[in-house]
Design a binder for these strands. Structure first.
Lengths: 293, 293
DNA sequence: TTTCATTTTTGTCCTAGACAAAATAGTATT
DNA sequence: AATACTATTTTGTCTAGGACAAAAATGAAA
Protein backbone atom coordinates (compact mmCIF):
# COMPACT_ATOMS: atom_id res chain seq x y z
CA UNK A 1 0.00 0.00 0.00
CA UNK A 2 1.38 3.35 -1.05
CA UNK A 3 1.60 6.32 1.24
CA UNK A 4 -1.24 8.15 -0.45
CA UNK A 5 -3.63 5.24 -0.17
CA UNK A 6 -2.69 4.80 3.46
CA UNK A 7 -3.18 8.48 4.13
CA UNK A 8 -6.63 8.33 2.59
CA UNK A 9 -7.52 5.10 4.33
CA UNK A 10 -6.55 6.15 7.83
CA UNK A 11 -7.12 9.85 7.54
CA UNK A 12 -3.64 11.06 8.47
CA UNK A 13 -1.75 13.47 6.25
CA UNK A 14 1.14 12.27 4.12
CA UNK A 15 3.56 14.70 5.71
CA UNK A 16 2.43 13.54 9.11
CA UNK A 17 3.10 9.92 8.27
CA UNK A 18 6.59 10.77 7.12
CA UNK A 19 7.45 12.87 10.12
CA UNK A 20 6.16 10.22 12.51
CA UNK A 21 8.56 7.81 10.91
CA UNK A 22 11.37 10.30 11.37
CA UNK A 23 10.51 11.26 14.93
CA UNK A 24 9.01 8.23 16.54
CA UNK A 25 10.29 5.46 14.32
CA UNK A 26 6.80 4.30 13.52
CA UNK A 27 5.48 3.17 11.18
CA UNK A 28 8.57 2.01 9.30
CA UNK A 29 7.36 0.76 5.94
CA UNK A 30 9.19 -1.36 3.43
CA UNK A 31 10.46 0.18 0.24
CA UNK A 32 9.66 -0.77 -3.32
CA UNK A 33 12.15 -0.81 -6.19
CA UNK A 34 11.94 2.96 -6.50
CA UNK A 35 12.62 3.54 -2.85
CA UNK A 36 9.02 4.52 -2.23
CA UNK A 37 7.34 3.59 1.03
CA UNK A 38 5.26 0.45 0.91
CA UNK A 39 3.08 -0.34 3.91
CA UNK A 40 2.12 -3.89 4.83
CA UNK A 41 -1.31 -4.80 6.12
CA UNK A 42 -0.22 -5.19 9.74
CA UNK A 43 1.25 -1.71 9.69
CA UNK A 44 -2.05 -0.39 8.44
CA UNK A 45 -3.84 -2.03 11.32
CA UNK A 46 -1.29 -0.87 13.87
CA UNK A 47 -1.73 2.63 12.53
CA UNK A 48 -5.49 2.39 12.75
CA UNK A 49 -5.05 1.53 16.40
CA UNK A 50 -2.97 4.66 16.86
CA UNK A 51 -5.60 6.73 15.09
CA UNK A 52 -8.32 5.31 17.28
CA UNK A 53 -6.37 6.29 20.37
CA UNK A 54 -5.87 9.77 18.98
CA UNK A 55 -9.61 10.05 18.45
CA UNK A 56 -9.89 9.70 22.21
CA UNK A 57 -7.62 12.69 22.63
CA UNK A 58 -4.31 10.95 23.29
CA UNK A 59 -1.30 12.59 21.70
CA UNK A 60 1.30 10.88 19.52
CA UNK A 61 4.05 11.48 22.05
CA UNK A 62 2.20 9.36 24.60
CA UNK A 63 0.97 6.72 22.21
CA UNK A 64 4.34 6.00 20.69
CA UNK A 65 5.95 5.29 24.07
CA UNK A 66 3.56 2.36 24.50
CA UNK A 67 3.98 -1.11 23.16
CA UNK A 68 1.32 -2.47 20.85
CA UNK A 69 -0.18 -4.53 23.70
CA UNK A 70 -0.38 -1.48 25.90
CA UNK A 71 -2.06 0.42 23.11
CA UNK A 72 -4.67 -2.25 22.71
CA UNK A 73 -5.27 -2.34 26.46
CA UNK A 74 -5.52 1.43 26.59
CA UNK A 75 -8.05 1.53 23.77
CA UNK A 76 -10.05 -1.24 25.37
CA UNK A 77 -10.24 0.53 28.70
CA UNK A 78 -11.26 3.75 27.01
CA UNK A 79 -13.94 1.93 25.07
CA UNK A 80 -15.20 0.19 28.19
CA UNK A 81 -15.96 3.54 29.76
CA UNK A 82 -18.71 3.85 27.21
CA UNK A 83 -22.25 3.02 28.13
CA UNK A 84 -23.29 -0.62 28.47
CA UNK A 85 -25.11 -2.04 25.52
CA UNK A 86 -28.83 -2.48 25.43
CA UNK A 87 -30.28 -5.87 24.58
CA UNK A 88 -32.63 -4.40 22.02
CA UNK A 89 -29.69 -2.83 20.25
CA UNK A 90 -27.82 -6.07 20.42
CA UNK A 91 -30.69 -7.77 18.65
CA UNK A 92 -30.77 -5.08 16.01
CA UNK A 93 -27.10 -5.44 15.28
CA UNK A 94 -27.29 -9.18 15.00
CA UNK A 95 -30.16 -9.14 12.53
CA UNK A 96 -28.84 -9.30 9.05
CA UNK A 97 -31.69 -9.26 6.60
CA UNK A 98 -32.68 -5.68 5.82
CA UNK A 99 -36.33 -6.55 6.20
CA UNK A 100 -35.81 -7.65 9.78
CA UNK A 101 -33.78 -4.57 10.59
CA UNK A 102 -36.33 -2.28 9.01
CA UNK A 103 -39.20 -3.97 10.85
CA UNK A 104 -37.46 -3.81 14.19
CA UNK A 105 -36.54 -0.16 13.76
CA UNK A 106 -39.97 0.97 12.66
CA UNK A 107 -41.57 -1.02 15.46
CA UNK A 108 -39.41 0.74 18.02
CA UNK A 109 -40.09 4.09 16.47
CA UNK A 110 -43.85 3.46 16.63
CA UNK A 111 -43.61 2.34 20.21
CA UNK A 112 -41.48 5.13 21.54
CA UNK A 113 -42.32 8.13 19.42
CA UNK A 114 -39.69 10.06 17.53
CA UNK A 115 -38.13 11.90 20.40
CA UNK A 116 -37.63 8.89 22.64
CA UNK A 117 -36.61 6.80 19.65
CA UNK A 118 -33.80 9.19 18.85
CA UNK A 119 -32.62 9.45 22.43
CA UNK A 120 -33.00 5.84 23.47
CA UNK A 121 -32.38 3.93 20.29
CA UNK A 122 -30.73 5.93 17.55
CA UNK A 123 -28.06 7.70 19.57
CA UNK A 124 -26.89 4.63 21.51
CA UNK A 125 -27.09 2.62 18.33
CA UNK A 126 -24.78 5.03 16.57
CA UNK A 127 -22.39 4.90 19.51
CA UNK A 128 -22.50 1.15 19.59
CA UNK A 129 -21.87 0.95 15.86
CA UNK A 130 -18.94 3.27 16.26
CA UNK A 131 -17.67 1.15 19.12
CA UNK A 132 -17.92 -2.08 17.19
CA UNK A 133 -16.38 -0.36 14.23
CA UNK A 134 -13.27 0.78 16.04
CA UNK A 135 -12.79 -2.64 17.56
CA UNK A 136 -13.32 -4.36 14.24
CA UNK A 137 -16.08 -6.26 15.94
CA UNK A 138 -18.73 -5.91 13.27
CA UNK A 139 -18.60 -6.59 9.58
CA UNK A 140 -18.58 -3.53 7.39
CA UNK A 141 -21.53 -4.92 5.47
CA UNK A 142 -23.63 -5.29 8.61
CA UNK A 143 -22.72 -1.83 9.75
CA UNK A 144 -23.71 -0.37 6.41
CA UNK A 145 -26.98 -2.23 6.24
CA UNK A 146 -27.92 -1.00 9.66
CA UNK A 147 -27.02 2.62 9.12
CA UNK A 148 -28.76 2.45 5.76
CA UNK A 149 -32.02 1.43 7.37
CA UNK A 150 -31.67 4.01 10.08
CA UNK A 151 -31.01 6.67 7.49
CA UNK A 152 -34.03 5.61 5.51
CA UNK A 153 -36.30 5.87 8.53
CA UNK A 154 -34.96 9.24 9.57
CA UNK A 155 -35.29 10.69 6.11
CA UNK A 156 -38.86 9.51 5.89
CA UNK A 157 -39.55 11.25 9.17
CA UNK A 158 -37.73 14.34 8.10
CA UNK A 159 -39.46 14.75 4.79
CA UNK A 160 -42.86 13.37 5.61
CA UNK A 161 -44.56 16.52 6.87
CA UNK A 162 -44.36 18.79 3.84
CA UNK A 163 -43.76 21.86 5.84
CA UNK A 164 -45.95 24.78 5.18
CA UNK A 165 -43.60 27.53 6.13
CA UNK A 166 -40.41 28.62 4.47
CA UNK A 167 -37.29 26.65 5.31
CA UNK A 168 -35.47 27.64 8.41
CA UNK A 169 -32.43 25.44 8.77
CA UNK A 170 -30.13 24.03 6.13
CA UNK A 171 -28.31 20.83 7.05
CA UNK A 172 -25.23 19.81 5.16
CA UNK A 173 -21.72 18.47 5.47
CA UNK A 174 -18.63 20.01 3.92
CA UNK A 175 -16.55 18.27 1.30
CA UNK A 176 -14.56 15.52 2.94
CA UNK A 177 -17.03 14.86 5.71
CA UNK A 178 -18.76 11.63 4.91
CA UNK A 179 -20.43 10.90 8.20
CA UNK A 180 -23.93 12.19 7.90
CA UNK A 181 -25.92 10.04 10.27
CA UNK A 182 -25.26 12.09 13.34
CA UNK A 183 -26.29 15.25 11.56
CA UNK A 184 -29.37 13.48 10.27
CA UNK A 185 -30.32 12.66 13.85
CA UNK A 186 -29.88 16.29 14.74
CA UNK A 187 -32.04 17.30 11.80
CA UNK A 188 -34.76 14.92 12.92
CA UNK A 189 -34.54 16.36 16.40
CA UNK A 190 -34.81 19.90 15.10
CA UNK A 191 -37.68 18.84 12.91
CA UNK A 192 -39.57 17.33 15.80
CA UNK A 193 -38.97 20.56 17.71
CA UNK A 194 -40.90 22.36 15.02
CA UNK A 195 -38.09 23.64 12.84
CA UNK A 196 -38.49 23.34 9.11
CA UNK A 197 -35.37 21.60 7.81
CA UNK A 198 -33.68 21.23 4.46
CA UNK A 199 -31.36 18.30 4.09
CA UNK A 200 -28.60 18.42 1.52
CA UNK A 201 -27.35 14.92 1.04
CA UNK A 202 -24.18 15.65 -0.86
CA UNK A 203 -21.06 17.24 0.50
CA UNK A 204 -20.60 20.86 -0.45
CA UNK A 205 -17.43 22.92 -0.81
CA UNK A 206 -17.11 25.64 1.76
CA UNK A 207 -17.32 28.39 -0.82
CA UNK A 208 -20.75 27.29 -2.02
CA UNK A 209 -22.40 27.41 1.36
CA UNK A 210 -23.01 31.15 1.81
CA UNK A 211 -24.55 31.55 -1.62
CA UNK A 212 -26.86 28.61 -1.17
CA UNK A 213 -27.92 29.66 2.30
CA UNK A 214 -28.70 33.10 1.02
CA UNK A 215 -30.64 31.92 -2.03
CA UNK A 216 -32.70 29.54 0.03
CA UNK A 217 -33.31 32.24 2.56
CA UNK A 218 -32.68 30.01 5.53
CA UNK A 219 -32.35 31.29 9.06
CA UNK A 220 -29.41 29.07 9.82
CA UNK A 221 -26.93 26.49 8.61
CA UNK A 222 -26.12 23.35 10.57
CA UNK A 223 -22.97 21.34 9.99
CA UNK A 224 -21.33 18.38 11.61
CA UNK A 225 -17.70 17.41 11.84
CA UNK A 226 -16.96 13.83 12.76
CA UNK A 227 -13.83 12.58 14.43
CA UNK A 228 -12.29 12.07 11.01
CA UNK A 229 -12.38 15.78 10.36
CA UNK A 230 -9.29 17.50 11.67
CA UNK A 231 -10.38 19.80 14.51
CA UNK A 232 -8.04 22.46 13.29
CA UNK A 233 -9.59 22.31 9.85
CA UNK A 234 -13.06 22.39 11.34
CA UNK A 235 -12.21 25.49 13.32
CA UNK A 236 -10.77 27.19 10.30
CA UNK A 237 -13.74 26.24 8.14
CA UNK A 238 -16.21 27.47 10.69
CA UNK A 239 -14.34 30.72 11.11
CA UNK A 240 -14.22 31.24 7.39
CA UNK A 241 -17.89 30.41 7.05
CA UNK A 242 -18.86 32.75 9.83
CA UNK A 243 -17.05 35.56 8.06
CA UNK A 244 -18.66 34.91 4.70
CA UNK A 245 -22.14 34.30 6.01
CA UNK A 246 -24.68 37.00 6.64
CA UNK A 247 -24.62 37.88 10.32
CA UNK A 248 -28.32 37.18 10.59
CA UNK A 249 -27.85 33.59 9.55
CA UNK A 250 -27.15 31.32 12.48
CA UNK A 251 -24.36 28.82 12.31
CA UNK A 252 -24.68 25.57 14.22
CA UNK A 253 -21.93 22.98 14.49
CA UNK A 254 -21.83 19.54 16.03
CA UNK A 255 -19.76 16.39 16.04
CA UNK A 256 -16.64 15.04 17.69
CA UNK A 257 -14.27 17.42 15.98
CA UNK A 258 -15.90 20.47 17.58
CA UNK A 259 -16.47 18.83 20.94
CA UNK A 260 -13.92 20.82 22.84
CA UNK A 261 -14.30 24.12 21.05
CA UNK A 262 -14.65 27.18 23.10
CA UNK A 263 -17.56 28.65 21.25
CA UNK A 264 -16.60 31.08 18.53
CA UNK A 265 -18.52 34.32 18.30
CA UNK A 266 -21.97 33.96 16.81
CA UNK A 267 -21.67 30.22 16.49
CA UNK A 268 -23.72 27.60 18.29
CA UNK A 269 -21.88 24.46 19.27
CA UNK A 270 -24.22 21.58 19.88
CA UNK A 271 -22.68 18.27 20.82
CA UNK A 272 -25.64 16.82 22.64
CA UNK A 273 -28.87 16.11 20.84
CA UNK A 274 -30.79 16.40 24.08
CA UNK A 275 -30.04 20.09 24.17
CA UNK A 276 -31.73 20.75 20.87
CA UNK A 277 -35.21 21.50 22.18
CA UNK A 278 -33.70 23.99 24.59
CA UNK A 279 -31.58 25.48 21.85
CA UNK A 280 -34.62 25.86 19.64
CA UNK A 281 -36.52 27.60 22.40
CA UNK A 282 -33.68 30.00 23.00
CA UNK A 283 -32.76 30.86 19.44
CA UNK A 284 -35.63 30.06 17.14
CA UNK A 285 -38.99 30.23 18.83
CA UNK A 286 -38.75 33.78 20.01
CA UNK A 287 -40.94 35.72 17.57
CA UNK A 288 -38.64 38.69 17.75
CA UNK A 289 -35.78 36.63 16.38
CA UNK A 290 -37.42 35.25 13.26
CA UNK A 291 -35.40 35.05 10.06
CA UNK A 292 -37.04 38.17 8.78
CA UNK A 293 -35.40 40.54 11.20
CA UNK B 1 -5.63 31.02 0.58
CA UNK B 2 -3.11 28.37 1.59
CA UNK B 3 -1.95 25.64 -0.72
CA UNK B 4 -3.89 22.95 1.10
CA UNK B 5 -7.17 24.80 0.90
CA UNK B 6 -6.60 25.50 -2.76
CA UNK B 7 -5.79 21.87 -3.41
CA UNK B 8 -9.00 20.79 -1.72
CA UNK B 9 -11.06 23.44 -3.44
CA UNK B 10 -9.91 22.77 -6.99
CA UNK B 11 -9.12 19.10 -6.67
CA UNK B 12 -5.48 19.23 -7.72
CA UNK B 13 -2.77 17.72 -5.55
CA UNK B 14 -0.41 19.89 -3.55
CA UNK B 15 2.64 18.45 -5.25
CA UNK B 16 1.05 19.08 -8.60
CA UNK B 17 0.42 22.72 -7.80
CA UNK B 18 4.04 23.19 -6.79
CA UNK B 19 5.45 21.48 -9.85
CA UNK B 20 3.20 23.45 -12.18
CA UNK B 21 4.67 26.57 -10.66
CA UNK B 22 8.16 25.21 -11.27
CA UNK B 23 7.55 23.96 -14.80
CA UNK B 24 5.00 26.26 -16.33
CA UNK B 25 5.33 29.34 -14.18
CA UNK B 26 1.68 29.20 -13.21
CA UNK B 27 0.16 29.82 -10.81
CA UNK B 28 2.72 32.01 -9.04
CA UNK B 29 1.29 32.82 -5.63
CA UNK B 30 2.37 35.47 -3.20
CA UNK B 31 4.22 34.51 -0.05
CA UNK B 32 3.33 35.17 3.55
CA UNK B 33 5.74 36.11 6.32
CA UNK B 34 6.89 32.51 6.63
CA UNK B 35 7.59 32.15 2.94
CA UNK B 36 4.51 30.00 2.46
CA UNK B 37 2.47 30.24 -0.73
CA UNK B 38 -0.59 32.42 -0.54
CA UNK B 39 -3.04 32.35 -3.43
CA UNK B 40 -5.23 35.30 -4.32
CA UNK B 41 -8.81 34.89 -5.48
CA UNK B 42 -8.07 35.60 -9.14
CA UNK B 43 -5.45 32.87 -9.16
CA UNK B 44 -8.02 30.49 -7.81
CA UNK B 45 -10.39 31.35 -10.62
CA UNK B 46 -7.70 31.13 -13.27
CA UNK B 47 -6.82 27.72 -11.92
CA UNK B 48 -10.42 26.62 -12.01
CA UNK B 49 -10.44 27.53 -15.70
CA UNK B 50 -7.40 25.34 -16.24
CA UNK B 51 -9.07 22.51 -14.37
CA UNK B 52 -12.18 22.82 -16.50
CA UNK B 53 -10.12 22.57 -19.66
CA UNK B 54 -8.40 19.51 -18.27
CA UNK B 55 -11.79 17.96 -17.67
CA UNK B 56 -12.26 18.10 -21.43
CA UNK B 57 -9.09 16.09 -21.86
CA UNK B 58 -6.66 18.91 -22.62
CA UNK B 59 -3.24 18.46 -21.12
CA UNK B 60 -1.36 21.00 -19.02
CA UNK B 61 1.36 21.37 -21.64
CA UNK B 62 -1.17 22.66 -24.14
CA UNK B 63 -3.18 24.72 -21.72
CA UNK B 64 -0.23 26.61 -20.32
CA UNK B 65 0.92 27.79 -23.76
CA UNK B 66 -2.37 29.70 -24.10
CA UNK B 67 -3.17 33.12 -22.78
CA UNK B 68 -6.07 33.47 -20.39
CA UNK B 69 -8.27 34.84 -23.18
CA UNK B 70 -7.44 31.90 -25.39
CA UNK B 71 -8.27 29.55 -22.56
CA UNK B 72 -11.66 31.12 -22.10
CA UNK B 73 -12.32 30.97 -25.83
CA UNK B 74 -11.24 27.35 -25.95
CA UNK B 75 -13.52 26.40 -23.09
CA UNK B 76 -16.39 28.25 -24.69
CA UNK B 77 -15.99 26.47 -28.00
CA UNK B 78 -15.83 23.13 -26.23
CA UNK B 79 -18.93 24.07 -24.33
CA UNK B 80 -20.79 24.91 -27.50
CA UNK B 81 -20.27 21.41 -28.83
CA UNK B 82 -22.44 20.03 -26.07
CA UNK B 83 -25.80 18.57 -26.90
CA UNK B 84 -28.71 20.97 -27.10
CA UNK B 85 -30.69 21.07 -23.93
CA UNK B 86 -34.33 20.24 -23.50
CA UNK B 87 -36.46 23.10 -22.32
CA UNK B 88 -38.05 21.05 -19.57
CA UNK B 89 -34.61 20.10 -18.31
CA UNK B 90 -33.50 23.68 -18.59
CA UNK B 91 -36.38 24.72 -16.41
CA UNK B 92 -35.52 22.03 -13.89
CA UNK B 93 -31.93 23.14 -13.68
CA UNK B 94 -32.81 26.78 -13.27
CA UNK B 95 -35.21 26.17 -10.43
CA UNK B 96 -33.46 26.64 -7.17
CA UNK B 97 -35.86 26.07 -4.35
CA UNK B 98 -36.02 22.39 -3.50
CA UNK B 99 -39.78 22.55 -3.34
CA UNK B 100 -40.01 23.72 -6.93
CA UNK B 101 -37.62 21.05 -8.13
CA UNK B 102 -39.46 18.34 -6.27
CA UNK B 103 -42.80 19.49 -7.63
CA UNK B 104 -41.56 19.62 -11.20
CA UNK B 105 -39.95 16.20 -10.96
CA UNK B 106 -42.94 14.48 -9.43
CA UNK B 107 -45.26 16.15 -11.93
CA UNK B 108 -43.21 14.78 -14.81
CA UNK B 109 -43.05 11.38 -13.25
CA UNK B 110 -46.85 11.33 -12.87
CA UNK B 111 -47.33 12.47 -16.41
CA UNK B 112 -44.94 10.09 -18.11
CA UNK B 113 -44.95 6.98 -15.94
CA UNK B 114 -41.78 5.59 -14.44
CA UNK B 115 -40.36 4.03 -17.54
CA UNK B 116 -40.68 7.04 -19.79
CA UNK B 117 -39.64 9.32 -16.95
CA UNK B 118 -36.37 7.46 -16.60
CA UNK B 119 -35.68 7.39 -20.32
CA UNK B 120 -36.81 10.86 -21.24
CA UNK B 121 -36.07 12.91 -18.16
CA UNK B 122 -33.76 11.24 -15.72
CA UNK B 123 -31.12 9.96 -18.14
CA UNK B 124 -30.74 13.17 -20.16
CA UNK B 125 -30.87 15.14 -16.96
CA UNK B 126 -27.97 13.16 -15.56
CA UNK B 127 -26.01 13.71 -18.74
CA UNK B 128 -26.75 17.39 -18.73
CA UNK B 129 -25.77 17.69 -15.09
CA UNK B 130 -22.53 15.92 -15.76
CA UNK B 131 -21.85 18.22 -18.69
CA UNK B 132 -22.56 21.36 -16.73
CA UNK B 133 -20.59 19.98 -13.86
CA UNK B 134 -17.40 19.31 -15.79
CA UNK B 135 -17.57 22.71 -17.40
CA UNK B 136 -18.21 24.47 -14.17
CA UNK B 137 -21.35 25.83 -15.75
CA UNK B 138 -23.68 25.07 -12.90
CA UNK B 139 -23.21 25.92 -9.30
CA UNK B 140 -22.28 22.95 -7.23
CA UNK B 141 -25.10 23.75 -4.87
CA UNK B 142 -27.66 23.68 -7.65
CA UNK B 143 -26.31 20.42 -8.98
CA UNK B 144 -26.50 18.84 -5.58
CA UNK B 145 -29.99 20.06 -4.87
CA UNK B 146 -31.18 18.63 -8.14
CA UNK B 147 -29.56 15.22 -7.81
CA UNK B 148 -30.76 15.13 -4.25
CA UNK B 149 -34.35 15.51 -5.32
CA UNK B 150 -33.97 13.00 -8.10
CA UNK B 151 -32.46 10.54 -5.69
CA UNK B 152 -35.28 11.05 -3.27
CA UNK B 153 -37.90 10.35 -5.91
CA UNK B 154 -36.16 7.25 -7.18
CA UNK B 155 -35.68 5.83 -3.72
CA UNK B 156 -39.32 6.36 -2.94
CA UNK B 157 -40.19 4.46 -6.09
CA UNK B 158 -37.71 1.77 -5.31
CA UNK B 159 -38.80 1.14 -1.76
CA UNK B 160 -42.49 1.88 -2.01
CA UNK B 161 -43.77 -1.60 -2.92
CA UNK B 162 -42.66 -3.66 0.06
CA UNK B 163 -41.80 -6.63 -2.00
CA UNK B 164 -43.30 -9.90 -0.98
CA UNK B 165 -40.71 -12.22 -2.35
CA UNK B 166 -37.12 -12.64 -1.25
CA UNK B 167 -34.60 -10.20 -2.66
CA UNK B 168 -33.16 -10.94 -6.02
CA UNK B 169 -30.68 -8.22 -6.89
CA UNK B 170 -28.26 -6.35 -4.64
CA UNK B 171 -27.22 -2.89 -5.85
CA UNK B 172 -24.11 -1.29 -4.47
CA UNK B 173 -21.00 0.69 -5.32
CA UNK B 174 -17.47 -0.21 -4.32
CA UNK B 175 -15.34 1.98 -2.08
CA UNK B 176 -14.18 4.99 -4.02
CA UNK B 177 -17.16 5.11 -6.33
CA UNK B 178 -19.27 8.00 -5.21
CA UNK B 179 -21.56 8.35 -8.18
CA UNK B 180 -24.66 6.41 -7.31
CA UNK B 181 -27.36 8.11 -9.30
CA UNK B 182 -26.83 6.12 -12.48
CA UNK B 183 -26.99 2.87 -10.58
CA UNK B 184 -30.08 4.09 -8.80
CA UNK B 185 -31.73 4.66 -12.16
CA UNK B 186 -30.81 1.12 -13.14
CA UNK B 187 -32.25 -0.20 -9.90
CA UNK B 188 -35.48 1.64 -10.54
CA UNK B 189 -35.60 0.18 -14.03
CA UNK B 190 -35.02 -3.33 -12.72
CA UNK B 191 -37.64 -2.74 -10.09
CA UNK B 192 -40.23 -1.65 -12.62
CA UNK B 193 -39.37 -4.77 -14.60
CA UNK B 194 -40.49 -6.84 -11.64
CA UNK B 195 -37.17 -7.55 -9.98
CA UNK B 196 -36.97 -7.24 -6.23
CA UNK B 197 -34.06 -4.94 -5.45
CA UNK B 198 -31.95 -4.20 -2.40
CA UNK B 199 -30.16 -0.90 -2.41
CA UNK B 200 -27.03 -0.47 -0.31
CA UNK B 201 -26.37 3.21 0.01
CA UNK B 202 -22.87 3.11 1.37
CA UNK B 203 -19.78 2.12 -0.51
CA UNK B 204 -18.50 -1.33 0.34
CA UNK B 205 -14.97 -2.72 0.15
CA UNK B 206 -14.57 -5.42 -2.47
CA UNK B 207 -13.83 -8.08 0.10
CA UNK B 208 -17.17 -7.63 1.85
CA UNK B 209 -19.33 -8.15 -1.20
CA UNK B 210 -19.32 -11.94 -1.57
CA UNK B 211 -20.16 -12.54 2.05
CA UNK B 212 -23.02 -10.10 2.02
CA UNK B 213 -24.43 -11.40 -1.24
CA UNK B 214 -24.34 -14.90 0.13
CA UNK B 215 -25.93 -14.01 3.46
CA UNK B 216 -28.72 -12.11 1.78
CA UNK B 217 -29.23 -14.95 -0.66
CA UNK B 218 -29.54 -12.70 -3.67
CA UNK B 219 -29.55 -13.97 -7.22
CA UNK B 220 -27.24 -11.26 -8.45
CA UNK B 221 -25.10 -8.24 -7.63
CA UNK B 222 -25.20 -5.05 -9.69
CA UNK B 223 -22.41 -2.47 -9.61
CA UNK B 224 -21.62 0.70 -11.46
CA UNK B 225 -18.32 2.35 -12.29
CA UNK B 226 -18.46 5.99 -13.28
CA UNK B 227 -15.96 7.79 -15.47
CA UNK B 228 -14.00 8.71 -12.38
CA UNK B 229 -13.24 5.06 -11.71
CA UNK B 230 -10.12 3.92 -13.51
CA UNK B 231 -11.18 1.34 -16.13
CA UNK B 232 -8.19 -0.80 -15.24
CA UNK B 233 -9.24 -0.86 -11.64
CA UNK B 234 -12.81 -1.66 -12.59
CA UNK B 235 -11.70 -4.60 -14.68
CA UNK B 236 -9.52 -5.91 -11.92
CA UNK B 237 -12.25 -5.51 -9.34
CA UNK B 238 -14.83 -7.25 -11.47
CA UNK B 239 -12.49 -10.12 -12.19
CA UNK B 240 -11.68 -10.52 -8.54
CA UNK B 241 -15.32 -10.37 -7.61
CA UNK B 242 -16.31 -12.92 -10.20
CA UNK B 243 -13.74 -15.31 -8.78
CA UNK B 244 -14.88 -14.88 -5.19
CA UNK B 245 -18.58 -14.95 -5.92
CA UNK B 246 -20.66 -18.11 -6.12
CA UNK B 247 -21.03 -19.03 -9.77
CA UNK B 248 -24.81 -19.05 -9.44
CA UNK B 249 -24.86 -15.41 -8.46
CA UNK B 250 -25.06 -13.12 -11.44
CA UNK B 251 -22.76 -10.14 -11.71
CA UNK B 252 -23.98 -7.05 -13.53
CA UNK B 253 -21.84 -4.02 -14.24
CA UNK B 254 -22.61 -0.65 -15.76
CA UNK B 255 -21.19 2.84 -16.08
CA UNK B 256 -18.71 4.72 -18.22
CA UNK B 257 -15.65 2.87 -16.96
CA UNK B 258 -16.93 -0.48 -18.28
CA UNK B 259 -18.30 0.92 -21.50
CA UNK B 260 -15.70 -0.58 -23.79
CA UNK B 261 -15.24 -3.85 -21.99
CA UNK B 262 -15.33 -7.02 -23.96
CA UNK B 263 -17.64 -8.92 -21.67
CA UNK B 264 -15.83 -11.08 -19.17
CA UNK B 265 -17.06 -14.62 -18.64
CA UNK B 266 -20.21 -14.85 -16.57
CA UNK B 267 -20.58 -11.12 -16.30
CA UNK B 268 -23.34 -8.97 -17.72
CA UNK B 269 -22.29 -5.57 -18.99
CA UNK B 270 -25.18 -3.17 -19.17
CA UNK B 271 -24.43 0.35 -20.33
CA UNK B 272 -27.87 1.20 -21.65
CA UNK B 273 -30.82 1.38 -19.34
CA UNK B 274 -33.18 0.66 -22.20
CA UNK B 275 -31.83 -2.84 -22.46
CA UNK B 276 -32.82 -3.72 -18.93
CA UNK B 277 -36.29 -5.13 -19.66
CA UNK B 278 -34.77 -7.37 -22.29
CA UNK B 279 -31.99 -8.40 -19.94
CA UNK B 280 -34.49 -9.25 -17.26
CA UNK B 281 -36.49 -11.38 -19.67
CA UNK B 282 -33.41 -13.25 -20.74
CA UNK B 283 -31.79 -13.86 -17.38
CA UNK B 284 -34.33 -13.52 -14.64
CA UNK B 285 -37.82 -14.34 -15.72
CA UNK B 286 -37.13 -17.91 -16.71
CA UNK B 287 -38.59 -19.98 -13.84
CA UNK B 288 -35.88 -22.59 -14.23
CA UNK B 289 -33.26 -19.99 -13.37
CA UNK B 290 -34.61 -18.76 -10.07
CA UNK B 291 -32.15 -18.07 -7.25
CA UNK B 292 -33.00 -21.37 -5.65
CA UNK B 293 -31.44 -23.54 -8.31
C1' DT C 1 -7.97 27.23 42.05
C1' DT C 2 -7.09 30.47 38.33
C1' DT C 3 -3.89 33.26 35.16
C1' DC C 4 -0.08 34.11 32.68
C1' DA C 5 4.46 33.13 30.60
C1' DT C 6 7.65 29.56 29.02
C1' DT C 7 8.83 25.27 27.01
C1' DT C 8 7.72 21.18 24.39
C1' DT C 9 5.15 18.90 21.07
C1' DT C 10 3.19 18.48 16.66
C1' DG C 11 1.62 19.19 11.94
C1' DT C 12 2.25 21.61 7.70
C1' DC C 13 4.99 23.92 4.62
C1' DC C 14 9.54 24.60 2.16
C1' DT C 15 13.28 23.31 -1.79
C1' DA C 16 15.00 20.59 -5.36
C1' DG C 17 15.73 16.21 -7.35
C1' DA C 18 14.23 11.49 -9.18
C1' DC C 19 11.51 8.39 -11.77
C1' DA C 20 7.55 5.53 -13.57
C1' DA C 21 3.06 5.64 -15.74
C1' DA C 22 0.50 7.75 -19.34
C1' DA C 23 0.26 10.09 -23.58
C1' DT C 24 2.14 11.24 -27.99
C1' DA C 25 4.85 10.68 -31.93
C1' DG C 26 7.29 7.90 -34.95
C1' DT C 27 8.21 3.57 -37.40
C1' DA C 28 7.36 -0.85 -39.19
C1' DT C 29 4.04 -4.43 -40.61
C1' DT C 30 -0.20 -6.50 -42.28
C1' DA D 1 -4.75 3.00 -45.06
C1' DA D 2 -5.16 0.73 -40.78
C1' DT D 3 -2.87 -1.71 -36.99
C1' DA D 4 0.89 -2.85 -33.84
C1' DC D 5 5.02 -1.94 -31.82
C1' DT D 6 8.80 1.22 -30.05
C1' DA D 7 10.87 5.55 -28.61
C1' DT D 8 10.22 9.95 -26.68
C1' DT D 9 8.02 13.41 -24.19
C1' DT D 10 4.95 14.80 -20.68
C1' DT D 11 3.14 14.63 -16.19
C1' DG D 12 2.15 13.50 -11.42
C1' DT D 13 3.76 11.55 -7.28
C1' DC D 14 7.32 10.36 -4.44
C1' DT D 15 11.92 11.32 -1.80
C1' DA D 16 14.92 13.85 1.93
C1' DG D 17 15.81 16.81 5.59
C1' DG D 18 15.08 21.50 7.22
C1' DA D 19 12.13 25.29 9.21
C1' DC D 20 8.62 27.27 11.92
C1' DA D 21 4.05 28.55 14.03
C1' DA D 22 0.00 26.86 16.36
C1' DA D 23 -1.47 23.96 20.08
C1' DA D 24 -0.66 21.68 24.28
C1' DA D 25 1.70 20.99 28.45
C1' DT D 26 4.25 22.73 32.14
C1' DG D 27 5.59 25.72 35.73
C1' DA D 28 5.34 30.01 38.43
C1' DA D 29 2.84 33.61 40.54
C1' DA D 30 -1.46 35.61 42.20
Amino acid sequence: MKIQQLSKEIGIGIDTLRIWERRYGFPIPGRDARGHRSYAQDQVEALQLVKNLMNFGLRPGKIFTLTEQQRRAQLQSLLDQGQPSDKRLQRLIDALAPQQIAQAITAMREELGLHRFIQEIAVPLLQLLDHRWTTGNISIAREHLLSDQLEKLLKTELFAPTNTDHPQLLFLTLSGERHKLGLLLAAAAFNSAGINCIWLNEELPLSEVPGLAHELGVAGVALSFSSHYLPRQAKQDLGSLRKQLDQKIKLIAGGHAVHQFTSLPNLLICTDLQLIPQLVRRHFNDPRVTPSN
